[in-house]
Nucleic acid binder design. Structure first.
Ligand SMILES: [Mn+2]
Ligand SMILES: [Mn+2]
Ligand SMILES: [Zn+2]
Ligand SMILES: [Zn+2]
Lengths: 123, 123
DNA sequence: TATGCTAATGCAACTAAGTTGCATTTAAGT
DNA sequence: ACTTAAATGCAACTTAGTTGCATTAGCATA
């Protein structure tokens, strides 16, 4: 099982909470907040946040703030931009939009906000 | 005085709180949080947030979340991207970086995160 | 300039995401 | 199986932002 390996590779203890959390993040193709996840997990929110924080410091997970005051987490694969729709609040991973360059800066993350395709179509 | 006119143009009452708030946002060239502003204003935080919210719905002000869990506000001029530094947490207005295009989407706001010029230089 | 209506304000209580301290449990090496 | 440090659950806390309500202050009209 690759989830177990992911945890062992970082020299972290393989706990049920960690397996549960990575399982859910891996099975979704879009970023999730604690709110999105909380009914699917058995761990306490303190455990959720402590593990997410560890996963982030080990570069297994990355996250960003949306405009609903919540933080969204996803398994860190190759870097890509995200689109947050001001209409329907949906968050999309833009896997085909490479991160732009900006002279002198190192761009590590990009968030676009605006109207998504379906909100544009039905407007 | 143009601050007074800005408020009257939107058919809002010209109150001292509103003048104070727009005065401070106008005098700064970068986005500010309530935390940044609170010692410079005399109004209550409820009044701050209610007015900021009205200014946003009237398109006088725009805002975005940073990664410190705070919302940053600025006078809405021409649209431009923002850069948030993961090193020093500074927020820059990228007035010369036009908003990119993305097929099918309407991009209204862009936030880049990473390392700023000075953090890159001293690293 | 005084009067009256309504929107704006101050205050205090509340909400909710995320954090922290601490006692208990559990993974994993021996 | 035994040991030990790391992980967990729980409850209390922190803090940005919100809300209800009584009071105040713009602004229109006379
Ligand atoms: Mn993504
Ligand atoms: Mn700006
Ligand atoms: Zn949408
Ligand atoms: Zn920096």
């Amino acid at each position: 099982m690759q989830i177990k390996n992911m945890i062992e590779e970082k020299n972290l203890k393989v706990t049920t909470a960690r397996k549960e959390l990575l399982e859910i993040l891996s099975s979704e193709k879009k970023p999730l907040s604690f709110e999105d996840i909380k009914d699917k997990i058995s761990m306490d929110k303190a455990t959720f946040y402590r593990n997410i924080s560890k996963f982030e410091s080990e570069s297994m997970v990355n996250s960003f703030e949306s405009n609903d005051k919540k933080r969204y987490y996803e398994i860190q694969e190759f870097p890509h931009a995200h689109f947050i729709c001001n209409g329907c609040s949906n968050i999309e991973c833009l896997e085909n939009a490479p991160l732009p360059k900006l002279d002198g800066y190192t761009i590590m993350d990009v968030i676009y906000k605006g109207m998504c395709k379906s909100c544009n179509a039905t407007q």
